[in-house]
Simulated assay, not measured.
Amino acid sequence: MPLSKEDVAAIAEYARFHLTDKELDEMTDYMNEAVRLLQPIREYDLEGVKPTYQPIGDLSNVMREDVVDDHDRALDLKDAMHNAGSTHDRYFRVPSILGDEEEA
Rank of each mutant, 00 (worst) to 15 (best):
L3W: 13
S4H: 04
S4K: 07
K5Q: 14
A10I: 03
A10F: 03
I11L: 14
I11D: 03
A12T: 10
A12M: 05
E13P: 00
E13L: 06
A15R: 10
A15I: 01
H18R: 13
L19D: 00
T20W: 00
D21Q: 11
D21G: 01
K22G: 09
D25K: 06
M27F: 06
M27Y: 07
T28N: 02
D29G: 10
D29I: 14
N32M: 06
E33N: 11
E33V: 09
E33C: 01
L38S: 12
L38W: 02
L38Y: 03
Q39C: 09
Q39I: 11
I41N: 13
R42G: 08
E43R: 10
E43A: 08
Y44V: 02
D45N: 15
D45Y: 08
E47R: 15
V49Y: 11
K50A: 10
T52R: 14
T52D: 08
Y53T: 13
Q54P: 02
P55D: 08
I56N: 15
G57R: 11
G57D: 15
D58P: 05
S60W: 12
S60M: 15
S60G: 14
N61A: 12
N61G: 05
V62D: 13
V62L: 13
V62T: 12
V62H: 06
M63P: 00
M63C: 10
E65L: 14
V68A: 09
V68E: 06
D69Y: 10
D70M: 09
D70R: 09
D70K: 09
D72W: 04
D76C: 04
L77E: 13
K78A: 05
K78P: 00
D79P: 00
A80V: 06
M81W: 01
M81I: 08
H82C: 03
H82L: 10
N83Q: 07
G85I: 03
S86V: 02
T87N: 03
T87D: 03
T87A: 05
H88Y: 13
H88T: 08
R90M: 06
Y91K: 11
F92T: 06
V94T: 12
V94P: 03
P95A: 12
P95H: 12
S96H: 04
S96V: 01
S96K: 04
I97V: 11
G99I: 05
D100T: 13
E102A: 04
E102K: 06
E103K: 14
